[in-house]
Amino acid sequence: MSSPAKAKPATAPMVFTANRLRDGRVVWLAGAGAWAETIAEAHVFPPAEAAAGQALAQAGERAQQVVGAYGVEVALQAGRPEPVKFRERLRVQGPSVDAEPPAYRLAS
């Protein structure tokens, strides 16, 4: 598991993220064997249960559902998980710049 937060014991609530194997899209661990496309659907693990979350995330890698799973510290904003780190907030939002040309946006 390639985890920026790997060795440290969790002190904040955690969610787990990875890239979906088939298409590389960012996904969030929603429960055993379940990966969702939005962080709103992610299961939030209290610090004491982070190890259990990590085990589920690793199981997702072993089951070849996802790659590069790691834990992300979050704070709860109105009950919804919001990553503490800027990098992970970008991962949630996607690039902060508009790269897609208008033709792509119109067609998609």
């Binding site: 890239n19 899209r25 070849q64 990098r87």
Partner: peptide, 28 residues
């Protein structure tokens, strides 16, 4: 074989890199 689960990411990663495929923040 990777999609079918016959290759793990550890096995596949050097092969995909040799073929120019990286895993980035949002996607491959």
């Amino acid at each position: 074989r990777r999609l079918a689960g016959a290759l793990t990411e550890d096995e596949f990663k050097p092969l995909r890199l040799m073929n120019g495929l990286y895993l980035q923040l949002h996607a491959y």
